[in-house]
Design a protein around this nucleic acid. Structure first.
Lengths: 214, 214
DNA sequence: TTATCGGTTGACCAGATGGTCAGGTTTTTG
DNA sequence: CAAAAACCTGACCATCTGGTCAACCGATAA
């Protein structure tokens, strides 16, 4: 039917697309956009290369869809925090969330980092604007807390950057950390690292670490 | 003469090699190893492609030499710090050094980050071992300070990771930061960011920020 | 003058890779 | 049960790119 003309998500379609996207996420994380071969993605998904091109018009298309899927992970409870909330609580939770993503979705984090390092050439400008808007809102919240004397840091932007930098570091540099520390960086180690980071940042802002994050 | 057989560093040679390495550093930082074309490097250096291949046997060779050149930047005063030094002073200086590299050599920092994200496939194992050795030494120094009650943080490894993560962040994500903050990230902004980071980390470790870094 | 040698370069190639296409099969739909 | 739509895929191709090669240049030494 003409109604179904644009509906490309039959049962099989949805299933295969998901399969391919998952495989692509891993491959892109490992080798970057240029270093990834469509054939590799196909192999990882257990399908012939042509089939990958059937669902995604081009390599670039596939990459963009992977990226869009990743962006949905970036939502957070911090998005809705208000001035009446407790800064220590909100920040600790935000850090914990970011660390959790680094642990459970390191590939996504890597791809995001690679994309940003290269100047975000594939992120639609609407995303950038949206991000700036989000940033403005969060920064003024932090600034309010600073003005109230409930948060002691000079630059709220810098605070956010530092949280991102450190949490993402654990995703991006996971392998390096294992080598340098000489022990596997497992769930428990991640939990310890999260506590450490929360303590560092909160103390650095003159905040008291909530019991549950100690 | 047979003596000069291996001497490939005549005046012209040294000059051209330096030219090519500088161009390669920029290109690799922009596009990564796979995304960089030898032709691009050649164009950036103002030489024909064949000439690049004359000085560097292969693209991979060129990349490794760029990488080795970068590694020399990683030396620091922190390397020689001893237990008798003041933790606050040593750490503040170390952070300032790292930030300075991010400001003056962002390309080098980017390449290093990209290399590490990909699991450091091109770093010779002797470098890794050397790095581990360095790390062990620095961690035990930090641990000594902790044991003496002069430094208050749980995991010295994590402390180093956080310093690296934040300072490198300013190199890697420079473009993103400009967009999000909506103003150029110049020398002055870098100086402010450095102070902020020093304050965050030192306060986070229960240290007092030395006057000169305020 | 001539041999040598570092340096230079255009022409060329083999392999890899993104992407197309036509024809086939399976599933859905009326 | 057809017809249509969705799905699948082997064969193929245009292009790109790392790397080779052989000829050539220009300075210096014998």
């Amino acid at each position: 039917m003409t109604q179904a003309k644009k509906n490309k998500d039959g049962r099989i379609s949805a299933q295969n697309k998901a399969l391919i996207l998952a495989a692509a996420e891993k491959e892109f994380a490992k080798h970057g956009f240029n270093g990834t071969r469509i054939q590799q993605v196909a192999d990882a998904a257990g399908l012939p290369k042509t089939n990958v091109l059937y669902y995604f018009k081009s390599k670039h298309d596939l990459y963009v869809e992977v990226l869009e899927q990743i962006l949905s992970l970036w939502n957070s409870a911090f998005d809705e925090a208000s001035i009446d909330d407790d800064p220590a609580d909100v920040l600790a939770r935000y850090i914990a969330e970011k660390m959790e993503i680094s642990r459970t979705k390191p590939e996504a984090s890597k791809i995001f980092a690679l994309e940003i390092i290269n100047g975000a050439p594939n992120l639609h400008s609407f995303f950038k604007e949206q991000h700036i808007h989000w940033m403005d809102g969060r920064v003024s919240l932090l600034q309010s807390w600073i003005d109230q004397g409930r948060l002691h840091t000079r630059d709220p932007y810098a605070l956010l950057f530092h949280i991102w930098a450190c949490s993402q570091h654990y995703a991006d540099f996971g392998a390096q950390i294992e080598v340098l520390k000489g022990e596997p960086f497992d769930e428990h180690a991640f939990s310890e690292a999260t506590k450490d980071l929360i303590e560092l940042i909160l103390k650095g802002c003159g905040l008291h670490v909530p019991e549950r994050y100690k």
